[in-house]
Design a protein around this nucleic acid. Structure first.
Lengths: 333, 333
DNA sequence: TTGAAAGCGCTAACAT
DNA sequence: ATGTTAGCGCTTTCAA
């Protein structure tokens, strides 16, 4: 069965029904130009009645603006992308701008294809988001006819990027642990080749100084478990707190501590990173963790894009946005 | 600083540079009409040189097709949406169709706003996806000028929907447990008001008959933990397997069993549902779980949409797509 | 084989 | 205050 599809109504339909010219109808609907009150109301009413909706394609053709932006992400899973997309949308929806989301899966061919499609659709700008700060874009982005903004990824020189302030996030967690009287804090985190991991580790080291110990590994529970086993099986002072590079790691750490019959936060306080709710809230005890405020990152990127599409100038560079500490029960206090 | 934005090239630019008329240039690029080989090659070359890219807005205006579809989701987090979106994209990208993703957050106002924006942009169709099968759409969708397809949600009568076959998924899990010699299988699942939960429970009951026991609750680890404690603290026969309605529940169940000093899968075999990798793979032992093949659900919805946009007819109804059992180590075997 | 011209739906000068 | 006209970038008859 084919559903009944109502024909799309055009401005012409409205004008004819209202017995006015195209331009009068247009002026009435857009409140531009001088139009008689009475005329305008008639036009408006008829427009509503017949379900008129202006054709954005025609408008865009004329104004050379599509009120559409593209978002290119290499994140398949969406844990990072969708919150950012929500922020982008939020900052643009009131300006009538919609978003094309394109997942590249890190495949240059796909990225190129999506980029072409976006440009063909006359997007007013493109936001690049990645799963890591030090992302290598899968496609050449210079010399585009539209502005580009990076979110959760640092673009090359002279571009505009918004990223979470990793140093700030790390400080939030570590200082929280110290304020609760913990002094032997270890840092278990992801792979060293992640810039974010290195920045957080550096911030942690700056606070803990000589007492600091960083274990790079993977962003997995398994690594958290393994690293914890290693740390607690050796001789010498045992840590009284662990600052984890991700909630998944934290979860593995807590698992290991339980197997070691150490209590959290009694014996060891734990701080996570990401505030990935499905993990952080469901861990026992619920994690104290760092939220990167991804939605805000997206919102800022959206606002920057808005300004650029209006021809405003924005200083290039990487803007680091503050994180937020979410208090669970894994640190006590 | 404002980046240098290259002006968009038009067909006119190409025609002028090639010294031919607009229509010849158009014919050459689209391989329509009769064009001299030589002429065509010149045009093609120049088009590439100056970076010409046809304006999809102008094309759409003429063809009354935007080669764009909208996707309306109420899922903020994206765990379900992005895999489906990937499937939709995959089935449409080769046909030059792009996707607008709009998150409604279950807010009727937002949904209405997004719907308007989509229609204004002349989308060729709209795919509705939900976080649950028995979704109540946040916005009126009848009488639209474009076809509508539902994915992971059942639309009203006379509409087209694609959902995972919950009964099949449940059977996969339960029959797997039975094939491994488990006979006292309990089912711990989410809220009873979820249609999917009821369907799975019914399928489970049909197999286990008198020995069946269903515990409805929430889709959380906490509930899994709690229900397990309750089941094992009472007198009488203890189950030798638990079929869980979600991986999160399964995780809570395994946690509880560990606290009860029961081994998995030795004493109790566990099957999950969702194959949410971050949970299923990281659980110890890794979960045997049901994958709903969300990408395939999206792909099928995309293909249906493709057919509809071409004016083909499709029988209305709910198409249930098979699930897949992912073997971990939580069932032994 | 190529070109001129009309028109998709809309907006913005310009005339009335 | 309203209408007429041109044109955004493209495709598509229809003539040449």
């Amino acid at each position: 069965m084919k559903p009944i599809l109502h024909r799309r109504r055009t401005l012409r339909d409205v004008a004819k029904a209202a017995g006015v010219s195209l331009s009068t109808a247009s002026n009435a609907l857009n409140a531009t130009g001088r139009v008689n009150r009475q005329t305008r109301e008639t036009v408006l009413q008829i427009a509503t009645e017949i379900g008129f909706m202006p054709n954005a394609l025609a408008r865009g053709l004329l104004s050379r603006r599509s009120f559409t932006i593209g978002m290119l992400t290499n994140d398949t899973y969406g844990r990072l992308t969708l919150p950012m997309m929500a922020g982008v949308s939020e900052s643009l929806v009131d300006h009538g701008i919609s978003v094309f989301l394109c997942a590249t899966n890190n495949d240059p061919r796909r990225a190129q294809l999506h980029l072409q499609a976006l440009l063909a659709r006359q997007v007013d700008g493109i936001i690049i988001t990645g799963t890591r700060r030090d992302l290598t874009p899968a496609v050449e982005l210079s010399g585009l006819p539209v502005p580009v903004v990076y979110a959760f990824a640092e673009g090359p020189a002279q571009t505009i990027s918004f990223v979470p302030d990793d140093a700030h996030g790390a400080r939030l967690a570590v200082e929280h642990l110290r304020s609760l009287g913990r002094s032997r804090i270890v840092h278990i985190t992801g792979p060293m080749d992640y810039l974010a991991a290195r920045i957080r580790a550096a911030a942690y080291r700056q606070i803990c100084g000589d007492a600091s110990e960083v274990r790079y590994g993977a962003w997995t529970e398994e690594w958290g478990y393994e690293a914890t086993q290693a740390i607690f099986s050796r001789a010498g002072d045992r840590p009284d707190a662990i600052f984890c590079g991700s909630d998944e790691i934290a979860r593995g750490v807590i698992d290991a501590l339980r197997d070691l019959e150490l209590s959290v936060p009694g014996d060891v306080a734990i701080a996570g990173y990401d505030n990935w709710e499905v993990i952080a809230r469901q861990t026992r005890p619920p994690l104290t963790t760092v939220d990167m405020e991804l939605k805000e990152v997206g919102r800022r990127a959206g606002l920057a894009m808005l300004a650029l599409t209006r021809g405003e100038e924005i200083a290039p560079g990487v803007v680091e946005l503050p994180c937020r500490l979410v208090i669970g029960r894994s640190c006590g206090g």
